[in-house]
Design a protein around this nucleic acid. Structure first.
Length: 853
RNA sequence: GCCCGCUUGGCGGAACAGGUAGACGCAACGGACUUAAAAUCCGUUGACCGAAAGGUCGUCCCGGUUCGAGUCCGGGAGCGGGCACCA
């Protein structure tokens, strides 16, 4: 049986597309534009299955939209700054720039072997000065617009390596390499004022109708708008006051203590003469900066000795605790504790023996309501609250806010959880921040004519600390303002900076500007953005903010960068381990004769674990290059699209890739050795079609309609299933059936077009086999004949009391009586009804008949 | 800890707006072809009872709404993503 020669075929068609520049995009007002973008990869060195999945999905959309007549932009580039390059430099002594450029070159080759319809002429790498020079300019514009500023903020500090650690480099409170206990340290850093757009970023989520609702919800919660009140507590024996933020001012009479963050100014002050508090603050600082670490730690606190005076109860001093669970970054860094109605406050109170006063009771249990180990968070009526008693929570909030404002003891406020974006990194492999520190002039922006500030190549990454700061000469510069010796900023940008505007750069890559205004006006926003759900908040929110900031600075005119968003699931694979519990690569496993898994080398027993996200650490990875080499790109692509819907996790299995490979060959045989020779394209419809041929003819058009519908809604696995069904029918056509040749011709033409976006190389090959002298990549999507989509008779299910008892075939839109009569005549129905009285018959036309007895 | 998801046969999944649960595929089993194997083709396949006709049960668990629930509502379990310096 001849096999499809994918190696020769795939390479040949890629060369043809290349030669014809099939995927080069240019502005064209005669066709609607469509910008498809997949999240660009970090150039780690080799593509992984997650990339294969992401880029297969994007390519399907791009090729499909092209066939539908859109002017498609589909670019690719490299998110090339980042920590791994520095780690590689430290571990293997290779320069980050060299390592990155080699990785890009290797990965570009791998991506090209997948047959992706990219316009490679627009390729960008963010680590090159011709890219990052423009973001230096953007930063200067942001600075001028008041969107960038400097403030102190906390970082994880490794005292042994003298370096700032990323959260992922802090493991159980210790530095990943040194093992030293991490300290929180305060550094002066650059921030972008994302909070200036908090309200707009929140409100505009509503308009992002083609985003998954869960992503919008996650962003909504991340921005975290709350309406509450600031309350000012006078401090006993002092002139200053404690300002707290709360969303539960209704529970003010349940307040039994106040709590402040460990880095609250008052805590710092009290610590000066209190060794216990000093030690407690130090222990809080050892927790690092990650919110997860802080929130999961046991709730602890120390009494400061300060007493906050209750604003509504005379002579009611509340103890003020320094705690590890109040965050300085949120609200005012201080709260009042109401243990009755907040679980954290209750846990804390039970631990430190503070009183618990319930002030809200469920409406039906107001008498004698008490709190045990669970705070009451529900709705109810106010109790134990003097003038508030009997009110609802909402009424109490209004009342209290009004009184606070009258007394000058507080005010209603809106608060956001969202914090400004800290963009300073004490790292080498990033974009230099274009600022000079001058003793006399302060912070001086680098003049535009001196951009780009280029990263020096000659750095020593083995020294502890910030490599740019360690460089012997780079930071020495004359102040652009006064000309005296000054010092360059040695921090670089967060790498989210580069990925916040790359989609605009793709619209027009030029040496003179970040992007052309006409080009972005034409191409943006991105019509379909595709990437991992792990970027649901940070990258996508930063890009939305950046778009607003760029608009404010006159760069572009759009409101949102990504009109449609698709989030893909992870690629998973079964894990394997040997007797000693060491992970094994799938390639190290084989079957013994008895059906057990053993190691390929020594025949030792292997334990198969559950399927998890492919990761190098668990070795459950399959190398895309090996798969493409063994089965071809189309097989790999088909497997990525079959079975699992894009937003769910996908399990990589050998059986699955074999199944895809078999289907590729089956398609190949259907075209090259069809049971019925297809009539040539454009042949007239024969007068007579045999029943099976007629059914197949209808199926062709139903498939066209269904596949289009599925692709529009990203149900790619269903589209594959529909196409398989159609090919099953075409395989059943036999020589001698009336009209078989004509329908086979129509069927093969249709299948070739439908598989084009999924298996582009095979599709192009069979297209040529059909005798077409054009390229399939330039062919239009097929059109379904609407007349063939409707059936005149429909099978309707018949239930008795909701249980299926049979089916009846009825004319389409049959009236109620006809349906009812037919249903009640069914033997199965008659038997079940027996002597019972029919109480009701529900008829939903063309769907169901339910007899209620 | 907080926020957001997911859970359907042996497996991946399908079921559009609450209306025939299991499309399509994988695996398994039986058969054809073959000296044999591979490849390919045909058939069976949710569980249980039954010779069959047919029946009962069944979409993570518990409860509710409805003529009717995989789908809607309340509660719970398990698994996963994010938590601001991984990208």
């Amino acid at each position: 049986m001849p096999r499809y020669n994918f190696k020769e075929t795939e390479a040949r068609w890629r060369a043809v597309w290349d030669r014809q520049a099939s995927f080069a995009a240019s502005e064209d007002s005669s066709r609607p534009k469509y910008y498809v973008l997949e999240m660009f990869p970090y150039p780690s060195g080799r593509i992984h299955m997650g990339h294969v999945r992401n880029y297969t999905l994007g390519d399907l959309v791009a090729r499909y939209k092209r066939a539908r007549g859109f002017n498609v932009l589909h670019p690719m580039g490299w998110d090339a700054f980042g920590l791994p390059a520095e780690n590689a430099a430290k571990e293997r002594g290779v320069h980050p720039a060299e390592w990155t450029r080699e990785n890009i070159s290797a990965m570009r080759g791998q991506l090209k072997s997948m047959g992706l319809s990219y316009d490679w002429s627009r390729e960008i790498a963010t680590c090159e000065p011709q890219y990052y020079r423009f973001e230096q300019k953007m930063f200067l514009d942001f600075l001028e617009a008041g969107l960038a500023y400097r403030k102190e903020s906390w970082v994880n500090w490794d005292p042994v390596e003298n370096t700032v650690l990323a959260n992922e480099q802090v493991i159980d409170g210790r530095g990943w390499r040194s093992g030293a206990e991490v300290e929180k340290r305060q550094l002066s850093q650059w921030f972008l004022k994302i909070t200036a757009y908090a309200e707009d970023l929140l409100k505009s989520l509503e308009g992002l109708e083609r985003w998954p609702s869960r992503v919008r919800l996650m962003q909504e919660n991340w921005i975290g708008r709350s309406t509450g009140a600031q309350i000012f507590f006078n401090l006993e024996g002092r002139d200053d006051r404690l300002e707290v933020y709360t969303t539960r001012h209704d529970t003010i009479f349940g307040a039994t203590f106040c709590a402040i963050a460990a880095n609250h100014p008052l805590a710092q002050e009290v610590a000066k003469n209190n060794p216990e508090i000093t030690e407690f603050i130090a222990s809080c600082n050892r927790l690092g900066t990650s919110e997860a670490a802080i929130e999961t730690a046991e709730k602890k606190g120390v009494d400061t000795g300060l007493r906050a005076m209750h604003p509504f109860i005379a002579d009611c001093p509340l103890p003020v605790y320094v705690t590890n669970f109040v965050l300085m970054e949120y609200g005012t860094g201080a709260i009042f504790g109401c243990p009755g109605h907040d679980q954290r406050d209750l846990d804390f109170s039970l631990k430190y023996g503070l009183p618990v006063i319930p002030v809200v009771a469920p409406a039906d249990a107001a008498e004698g309501f008490t709190i045990g180990e669970e705070a009451y968070l529900g709705d109810g009526v106010m109790i134990n609250s003097r003038f508030l008693d009997g009110m609802t929570i909402a009424q109490a909030k209004e009342d209290i806010a009004g009184r606070l404002e009258k007394m000058g003891a507080g005010k209603k406020t809106v608060n956001y959880r969202l914090r400004d974006w800290g963009v300073s990194r004490q790292r080498y492999w990033g974009c230099p921040i274009p600022v000079v520190h001058c003793q006399d002039c302060g912070l001086v922006p680098v003049p535009e004519k001196d951009l780009p500030v280029v990263l020096p190549e000659d750095v020593d990454l083995d020294l502890p600390g910030n490599p740019l700061d360690n460089h012997p000469t780079w930071k020495d510069v004359d102040c652009p303002a006064c000309g005296k010796p000054a010092r360059r900023e040695t921090d670089t940008f967060d790498t989210f900076f580069e990925s916040s505007w790359y989609f605009a750069r793709f619209a027009s890559v030029s040496d003179s500007q970040a992007f052309g205004r006409e080009a972005v006006d034409y191409w943006l926003p991105v019509d379909q953005y595709i990437g991992g759900i792990e970027h649901a908040v940070l990258h996508l929110l930063y890009s939305r903010f950046f778009t607003r900031a760029l608009k404010q600075c006159g760069y572009l005119g759009i409101g949102e960068p990504f009109d449609g968003l698709m989030t893909q699931g992870m690629v998973c694979h079964q894990t394997y381990s040997d007797e000693d519990g060491n992970w094994l690569y799938p390639s190290e496993i084989t079957h013994d004769g008895k059906g057990d898994l053993v190691t390929a080398s020594g025949g030792k027993p292997v334990t198969a674990g559950r399927s998890e996200k492919m990761s190098k650490s668990k070795k459950n990875v399959v190398d895309p290059e090996a798969i493409i080499d063994a089965y071809g790109a189309d097989t790999a692509r088909l497997f990525m699209l079959s079975d699992s819907p894009p937003d769910r996790d996908l399990d990589w299995t050998d059986a699955g890739i074999d199944g895809a490979w078999r289907y590729i060959n089956r398609l190949w045989r259907l075209f090259t050795e069809p049971a019925v020779n297809p009539a040539p394209g454009g042949a007239p419809r024969p007068d007579v079609l045999s029943p099976q041929v007629e059914k197949t003819h209808r199926a062709i058009h139903k498939t066209i309609a269904a596949v289009g519908n599925d692709l529009d809604r990203f149900h790619f696995n269903k589209a594959v299933a529909r196409i398989r069904e159609l090919t099953n029918l075409l395989e059943d056509l036999k020589e001698g059936m009336d009209g078989a040749a004509w329908v086979m011709g129509e069927g093969l033409d249709t299948v070739a077009r439908l598989i084009g976006p999924m298996m582009p190389h095979l599709a192009e090959e069979v297209w040529r086999h059909l005798g077409r002298d054009t390229l399939l990549v330039d062919a239009a999507w097929p059109q379904a004949d609407a007349a063939l989509l409707v059936e005149d008779r429909i099978t309707v299910a018949v239930q008795v009391n909701g249980k299926l008892r049979g089916t009846v075939e009825l004319p389409k839109s049959a009236d109620k009586e006809t349906a009812e009569t037919a249903a009640l005549a069914l033997p199965g129905v008659v038997k079940v009804i027996g002597e019972s009285t029919i109480r009701k018959v529900i008829v939903v036309p063309d769907r169901i008949i339910n007899v209620v007895i």
